[in-house]
Amino acid sequence: MRHSKASLIAGYILLAIVTVLFIGPFLWLIRSSLMDLSQIFTMPPEWIPKPFHWDNFHRALTVLPFGTYFANTLIITVSVIIGTVLSSSVAAFGFARVEWCGRNFVFAILMSSLMLPTAVTLIPSFLGWRALGFYDTFYPLIVPAYFGGGIFNIFLLRQFYLTIPRDFDEAAFVDGASYFQIYRSIIFPLSRSAIIVVALFCFLAAWNDFMGPLIYLKSDSLFTLALGLQMFQGTYTAQWDLLMAASATVVLPCVAVFLLGQKYFLEGITLTGLKG
């Protein structure tokens, strides 16, 4: 579509406003994280730290064991990604590439669980894990990923698998390949980009999860970054410099992963939206 000059100018002005509104909070975060308290409280607000207080990061990250929180978050996130990619890709294979009686029925039942609010299963799941002695461990946060990895991911991968020509499977069968070999050496490698999409969304969900760790983790030494940051806020209420430094540290890995995998993120959302 071609635009008139006036509408182009209006478009740029509006986009500039949008940019300021969406990026502004990030700048405010970074600026506050590098100031000392007296400059932070100066009115009207200043934007450039004078001098740059890089030691805020050091102080914020040492008053609470953020190194431990970081390691915990990493362990949980990596375990969840592995489980999700393995189990959702296997299940999607069963729903997209194997013909069996009742397949669509079973798939529809699993899909219906998307409507179920997590609150409904929350309490019995908690009681179950506690009864098994796994309260205050990572297991409740990790193990479910190995059992299906979320119906939404299965759905996404299934849609992708359905676009791969059937002839590939047939040719492999003629050569004497088994279902598992077809999955491993044809379907899985061919769906690389869809699997990256699943892994990236899974990273964000696990890294950002707040309610799960809040409910299942009690010991300070097992806390994740999200929980740690919340704790920090409770303890250092008015220390906005340290609070912002700690927040920036939690935000940074997400931004880095997003910028690295940007192409896949945007593709992935588009895929989910169109199929809805």
Partner: peptide, 28 residues
């Protein structure tokens, strides 16, 4: 067609649904 393989590949997801969704749902 292979019912066996279909169930084999989807069994982790089906088990997950029974253990982490349907079971807790009934229990709640």
């Amino acid at each position: 067609k292979s019912l066996f393989h279909g169930l084999l590949f989807t069994s982790p997801a089906i088990l997950g649904f029974l253990i982490f969704t349907l079971g807790p749902m009934i229990a709640s």
